[in-house]
Amino acid sequence: TEVDLHLGDITIKLKDVSEEIVKRAKELFKNGWSAEFVKKWIEEAVK
């Protein structure tokens, strides 16, 4: 499945990412993480 994760003005296309990771990524962004950091976190999380 593909998900578009909207973080501010940046959209990250996610492939084969669990709902849990998407939820967590949104929380991290809301908590002040930059979109770049969230993207890196996701990449690490799906390895």
Rank of each mutant, 00 (worst) to 15 (best):
K26C: 10
S18F: 06
K39E: 06
V46W: 07
E27M: 14
D9A: 11
K15C: 08
E44F: 15
F29V: 04
V38T: 03
A35E: 04
G8W: 04
K26N: 08
H6K: 13
A25V: 03
F29P: 00
N31L: 15
A45I: 11
E2D: 12
K13L: 13
N31W: 14
L14S: 02
E20M: 11
H6M: 11
K26R: 15
W41M: 03
K15M: 12
S34Q: 04
E44A: 09
V46L: 15
T1S: 12
G32V: 01
K30D: 13
K23L: 15
V3N: 07
F29L: 06
K40E: 10
A35L: 09
W33Q: 08
V22I: 14
V3M: 13
K13M: 12
V17K: 01
T11P: 03
V46G: 05
K15R: 13
I21F: 06
L14D: 02
E27F: 12
S34F: 05
H6Q: 13
E2Q: 09
G32P: 01
K30R: 15
I10E: 10
K13Y: 10
V3K: 07
D9Q: 08
V17T: 04
F37W: 15
T1H: 13
V38G: 00
W33S: 08
D16K: 05
D9Y: 06
A25I: 04
E36Q: 11
G32S: 02
L5N: 03
E19N: 09
E19R: 08
G8Q: 04
E36F: 06
K40P: 00
F29T: 01
K47E: 09
K26I: 15
L5G: 02
I42F: 03
K39W: 15
E27D: 08
L5H: 02
I42T: 02
I42G: 00
V22M: 10
W33I: 05
G32M: 02
V46S: 09
I12P: 01
V17E: 01
E36I: 08
D9I: 10
K30N: 14
E36N: 07
K23N: 12
V22G: 02
I21N: 01
A45D: 01
A45W: 11
L7E: 02
I21D: 02
K47L: 13
T1P: 10
S18R: 06
L28G: 03
I12M: 08
T11M: 06
D16M: 06
L14C: 06
K13N: 11
S18H: 09
S34V: 04
E20W: 15
A25G: 03
L7A: 02
E2V: 12
I42Y: 02
V3H: 11
L14W: 05
K13A: 10
L5Y: 02
H6F: 07
S34Y: 03
L7F: 08
L5M: 06
K30F: 10
